[in-house]
């Protein structure tokens, strides 16, 4: 594949291939020296127009473990503050020999737009409230590991929180259902998108109703500005209805899996400390993030990179 911009574009075969390849990368990460020369001579640019800790570091670590060069573009110290346009920025960096852009931007669709301005591959690290495909692949990988089966038929996934503004929810719902899971979303009506009726999910407004039958519990981060927008009455009110409290945690099945994409709001959606929760896989999510992003970078930059270019040259 040339780009990874959305789960839909990736498709079920692509998703399975990446999950398979990530198990291979996970072995490399367990070696005494976790570094291979596979992407020597390739340059990966991380271009984050929005703040991020784990996604950016995870991509950069992944690139380094595959021996790619990394360039980090920091918006606040760049010419963007002098008014440089996105297009000029992309074209400038492309001229420096970038093979891949890892992009995060507050606007949906930016990864598709950028792809028109450069020959480099584009990996979407989050665009607006649209997609965050690598997070979804990480989460599928983590569930696979936790339940020890490759497909999720018969697995009940419950996603709780701000579905409306969450790119993680969109990508994860697509990916989980691709692998056979039944997805239920739990949220106040104000935090559900208007098109939710067209999504392959069951909508429930009461967390307590579904907690005991949940196999995979996915907590989303609540951004505090949602309160200022009047979408929730108060953070504590939201927490009592939709937070993972100790009482709710005790009703979870012992075999359940609890995940959170981070960063966590303790006392809002997470009232229990994950380290007190035996079902928590939040640390594994972070660890798996590196293996999965290595698989993505390798696929985009090596697997059939030059063949693809050859195809394009032939068909041009």
């Amino acid at each position: 594949m040339k780009h990874l911009r959305s789960i839909g574009e990736l498709g079920r075969d692509g998703l399975e291939q990446l999950l398979e390849s990530a198990t291979h990368m996970a072995e490399i990460n367990r070696r005494p020296i976790p570094k291979v020369p596979a992407l020597r001579g390739k340059t990966v640019v991380s271009l984050f127009y929005e703040d991020s800790t784990r996604t950016r570091l995870s991509f950069e670590t992944a690139a380094k473990r595959l021996s790619a060069e990394t360039m980090t573009f920091s918006v606040s110290t760049s010419s963007v503050s002098k008014g440089e346009s996105l297009r000029d920025t992309i074209e400038t960096i492309s001229q420096m020999g970038a093979h891949c852009f890892v992009v995060r931007h507050k606007s949906s669709g930016v990864p598709w737009q950028i792809a028109q301005w450069t020959n480099a591959s584009i990996i979407n690290a989050g665009d607006g409230a649209h997609q965050h495909p690598t997070q979804a692949i990480v989460d599928c990988f983590t569930v696979r590991q936790a339940i020890d089966q490759p497909f999720f038929n018969g697995v009940n996934v419950t996603i709780v929180g701000d579905i409306k503004h969450s790119r993680v929810a969109r990508s994860n719902i697509e990916a989980f259902t691709m692998l056979g899971a039944r997805v239920t979303v739990v949220a106040p009506p104000t935090l559900l998108p208007s098109q939710i009726g067209h999504w392959p999910v069951t909508v429930v407004h009461s967390f307590d109703e579904v907690i005991a039958s949940t196999d995979v519990l996915y907590m989303l981060r609540l951004q505090s500005e949602r309160m200022d927008q009047g979408l929730i009455p108060s953070l504590s009110e939201y927490g009592s209805q939709f937070g993972l409290t100790m009482e709710r945690a005790q009703r979870l099945q012992s075999s359940a899996v609890v995940m959170h994409p981070g960063p966590m709001n303790r006392g809002v959606e997470m009232h229990v400390d994950p380290s007190d929760l035996p079902q928590s896989r939040i640390h594994q999510q972070v660890e798996n993030g590196i293996s999965v992003r290595m698989a993505v970078l390798f696929d985009v930059l090596a697997r059939d990179g030059e063949l693809q270019q050859l195809h394009e040259e032939v068909s041009a």
Binding site: E20, S21, T23, H24, M25, E27, I28, R31, V36, P37, A38, L39, L66, F298, L301, A302, R303, D304, G305, E306, L307
Partner: peptide, 22 residues
């Protein structure tokens, strides 16, 4: 040992990581 990540023909022909080193 799986050596696919150490090959010198990565990018020249499609390489799929085959099996897992142990």
């Amino acid at each position: 040992l799986d050596v696919s990540m150490h090959r010198d023909d990565i990018g020249i022909r499609p390489i799929v990581p085959g099996a897992i080193s142990d």
